[in-house]
Computed example of a mutant assay.
Amino acid sequence: MAGPKDLDPSSSPRALLGAELRHAREKAGLSQEELGQRLFVSGSFVGQLEAGTRRMQADVARQLDEVLGTEDFFQRNCGAAAKSKYPEHFAEAAEAEARAAAISQYAPLLIPGLLQTPAYARAVCRAYQPTVPDEEIEKLVAARRERARLLDDPTEPMLWTVIDEAALRRVTGGRTVMAEALCHIAELARRSRVIVQVLPFDAGAHAAMEGSTKIMEFEDAPPLVYFEGVGTGRLEDDPAIVRHQRFTYRLLMASALSPQKSLALIEAMAQDYAHEEHP
């Protein structure tokens, strides 16, 4: 297994923790696979901890201190590295997303977070939590917009998303909001920043009818798959699961409209929303 690239310890607490783990492992004369065996996890999981793509949980930190003889270093520091502005079930996925070189995502019910406008994100967050104060909603919207700054980089991550037609037809936040949201997606696609395909209703049954999926690829760590439900989510690095999800995503791309036809449909729907709001 190729070793991870050097991390900048000043970039984040998690980068510091990953760099310290790599140092302690190498000092102990252990490979990632050998350390993983002692922790009853895969070598790739250890690599993801070192690369900062996985969050170090308290039980893993305790085992690391025992195996590597680091007293309570990892136990004391894993809490600081785990702090996040995102909901607990999504925090680790969001942090992995920020380090990904490529992201492939199927979105069956709503526009993916990285492609959302503030108004659309606000409507989604309010629907999730109808009774919380406005300032809490604004914090969630700000966090989502911060995630979307990944796309300010002209080339990375490479984002390829398949959006179900249902997500584009559901009027979220009103027709003006939808018109703006679809224009935003079209603008990103037109300047070749993202690849977007629409999975139309008339595609019929397809390989991902049971839910959304996100595949994240990294330059220095094995890929991860993120599954999300209502208020819950989980990351998977099992090679068999990753392989199956990659196959599923290829089937979705084959069933979806081409990027060119998808862009034409998105722009036509944006015009329809705008004209319906302002006859």
Rank of each mutant, 00 (worst) to 15 (best):
R169E: 09
P279Y: 10
A81R: 01
A98Q: 14
S11N: 07
Q63D: 08
D164I: 03
S12P: 06
M158I: 14
E217M: 09
L49N: 01
S10E: 13
L188E: 09
E277P: 01
Q75G: 01
L110V: 13
P112C: 07
E276W: 08
L168V: 13
A81Y: 00
A123H: 02
A127G: 11
P279G: 14
V230L: 15
L224M: 07
L263Y: 00
G18Y: 00
A221E: 00
A208K: 04
R122P: 02
A207S: 15
E210M: 14
L7K: 15
R144F: 05
P222F: 05
I266V: 15
V225H: 02
L224D: 07
V196T: 12
I241W: 04
F227Y: 14
L110N: 12
Q75A: 14
Q32G: 11
V198R: 04
V141R: 06
S262R: 03
A107M: 08
L150I: 08
H184I: 01
S10R: 15
A274K: 12
R126H: 07
L109H: 12
P87D: 09
V67F: 01
I185N: 03
H206V: 06
Y226P: 01
A221D: 05
A205D: 12
P239V: 09
I163H: 06
D152G: 00
T131R: 14
I241F: 14
G29L: 05
R14A: 05
D238N: 15
A208H: 07
M269R: 14
D65C: 00
L224R: 06
G113K: 04
D220P: 06
A179Y: 03
A270F: 06
A166N: 04
H184D: 04
A24D: 13
I111K: 05
E210R: 13
E136N: 11
L110E: 13
Q197K: 06
V225D: 04
L16V: 00
Q245S: 11
E88S: 11
D153T: 03
G231H: 07
S11R: 14
K27P: 02
E146I: 00
V41K: 03
L17I: 07
N77W: 10
H89C: 05
G204F: 11
G79S: 14
L182S: 03
A123P: 02
S258G: 02
A270P: 09
A270Q: 08
C125D: 09
L114V: 10
G211Y: 11
R25Y: 06
A127K: 06
D272A: 13
E95A: 12
V242F: 05
T213L: 15
V41L: 09
E92R: 00
F201A: 12
G233K: 02
L39V: 04
P9E: 10
L7S: 11
T155K: 13
E236L: 15
F247R: 15
G52Y: 02
T53V: 14
E217Y: 04
A203E: 10
Q271S: 13
V132F: 05
I195R: 15
R191C: 12
Q116D: 09
A143E: 09
E276M: 10
H184E: 10
H244D: 15
Q105H: 13
G229L: 10
